[in-house]
Structures are given as structure tokens and as C-alpha cells.
């Protein structure tokens, strides 16, 4: 996103359409004794979601402050009440909850540095109609991501 690396896949035409996370650029790649490092070894992962993976979600559900994440129905009331989201469009608690629930890992990686922007003011948790405690869920997501050194 904002920190788009200039180096990664710089030669790709219409480079700005592709997220950093989807570009795989192995430093050293040898295939049948031929050095394929550099341009020829670059791989662009498809945008299509090919799997729903709930492993991270299960871990967050086990975190004391993330245990109501499964109740979220994506109304966005949390984001609407959030003072951080008001200033920074990349901080969206509603969205973070969804990508965690569905296990969209590349998307989560893209936003990993934004989850910590949560100021723990708790306004989202006050307005959430389902009792999800999104503020707590942000903390739980952060903790679990740290566990994976993300």
C-alpha cells in the first residue's frame, strides 16, 4: 500500500495495479543448474481467493479479548465510530475482522502495520450491536500476529 517498495517487480508494466504482497521475487533461484534469479524468477500470485483458512481465526477466538469475533456481521458501526478510522482510511476494524475470519493472509499482511494504530478508546465496542468488542479483537489480532512475528 503506501509503503510500496520501489524495487520489487519494478520492471512490471502497470506495476501499480499489483500489491507488494503478491509479488514473489526469490533472491537466488536455480532451475536445472540455470540461474533464474532476477527478472525471470519473479512470480505474481493471483488475486483470486483460493481458500478460506480459519486457523488464525480460531486462535483469535481463543484469546480472551477476541472471543466474540464470530458474532460480527460486518455492519461497520465500529469503523463509523472509530476516531482513528476517521483520520486514516487504511485503519478499518470491520475489515480487519472479516479478513481474519476468512483467513485472507496476503490481505492481512498488507494491513499488519495498521492494526496497531488502534488507540483502545473503546468507542467501537460501545456501539457494536452484536457485542463483538472490536477494540478487544484488535488487541487479540495484534497479539496473534506478533506470535507469528508478522
Amino acid at each position: 500500500m503506501s509503503k510500496k517498495s520501489k524495487k520489487k517487480g519494478a520492471f512490471i508494466i502497470e506495476r501499480e495495479y499489483i500489491d507488494d504482497q503478491r509479488i514473489i521475487e526469490p533472491e537466488h533461484l536455480k532451475l536445472e543448474e540455470v540461474d533464474m534469479s532476477g527478472r525471470w524468477g519473479v512470480l505474481v500470485l493471483p488475486r483470486t481467493i483460493e481458500e478460506f483458512n480459519h486457523s488464525l481465526y480460531e486462535e483469535i477466538k481463543n484469546h480472551p479479548r477476541g472471543r466474540n469475533i464470530h458474532k460480527c456481521w460486518q455492519c461497520g458501526n465500529c469503523t463509523a465510530a472509530c476516531p482513528v478510522a476517521e483520520e486514516n482510511p487504511l485503519f478499518n476494524p470491520r475489515y480487519f475482522i472479516h479478513i481474519v475470519k476468512m483467513g485472507y493472509k496476503l490481505e492481512l499482511e498488507k494491513f499488519k502495520d495498521y492494526i496497531y494504530l488502534c488507540g483502545s478508546c473503546g468507542r467501537c465496542s460501545e456501539v457494536c450491536p452484536k457485542g463483538v468488542d472490536p477494540s478487544g479483537v484488535m488487541e487479540a489480532i495484534g497479539t496473534v500476529l506478533r506470535r507469528y512475528k508478522l
Binding site: 488475486r47 483470486t48 481467493i49 483460493e50 481458500e51 478460506f52 460486518q74 475489515y95 472479516h98 479478513i99 476468512m102 485472507y104 490481505e107
Partner: peptide, 11 residues
């Protein structure tokens, strides 16, 4: 499409 993430899916 998962319209909440603007993501086409094939699962």
C-alpha cells in the same frame, strides 16, 4: 466475489 473485501474467489 466476497464483496466485503472486493475479492473474487474460486473455492
Amino acid at each position: 466475489e466476497d464483496t466485503l473485501v472486493r475479492g473474487p474467489f474460486e473455492v
